[in-house]
């Protein structure tokens, strides 16, 4: 556990320094949006769109649908492959230790989404992690749960669909 944890922390630091000079254009076109469920009642407006602004559904509804449809949902700075914040990077790397599908939205791309997520969870910072619709917390709490085994317990019935 200690070795694994040190590795996680080291990778987090490495990732941060690696991404420090990254410009926005590096990941232009690589967008992570929540996948839409097979629920026949899903409204057309929840289907993937290039910009959230095109939807006439409120952002609060988008977020509610996100966390409902995706067993592990993270609102972060950057995207899982290119985190732009050490805290977001840490949370992603911890979650990637488990074989579960990770869905993400980049709150740096949309200030309105950022504010809507803060209001939705009543939590002022990022990343924010939701598991099976429940707000879990930020990177401190995700890491703590990983260390105590709570995270494994919470994720045990979520399997990778790959």
């Amino acid at each position: 556990m200690t070795t694994s944890l040190s590795s996680i922390l080291f990778k987090g630091i490495a990732a941060r320094s690696f991404t420090a000079p990254l410009t926005r254009s590096c990941y232009h076109g690589m967008r992570y949006f929540a996948t839409v469920s097979n629920d026949p009642d899903t409204h057309d407006d929840f289907k993937p769109a290039n910009k959230l602004e095109n939807s006439n559904i409120s952002l609060a509804d988008v977020i509610e649908q996100d966390v409902k449809d995706n067993p592990v949902m993270i609102y972060m700075k950057g995207v899982p492959d290119f985190p732009q914040c050490g805290f977001s990077s840490l949370a992603v790397r911890v979650l990637q230790q488990y074989d579960v599908p990770l869905s993400a939205r980049n709150i740096l791309e949309d200030p309105e989404l950022k504010n809507a997520v803060k209001a939705f969870s009543n939590w002022p910072t990022f990343p924010q992690v939701f598991i099976k619709g429940e707000f879990i917390g930020g990177s401190d709490i995700v890491l703590n749960m990983h260390q105590t085994g709570d995270l494994k317990e919470k994720l045990k019935d979520i399997t990778s669909k790959q």
Partner: peptide, 17 residues
């Protein structure tokens, strides 16, 4: 819970945030 503890602290420091 951890979430409640952190939220308590964030609330106390809302002006700073």
């Amino acid at each position: 819970s951890l979430v409640k503890r952190h939220r308590l602290i964030y609330d106390l420091l809302a002006d700073e945030l």
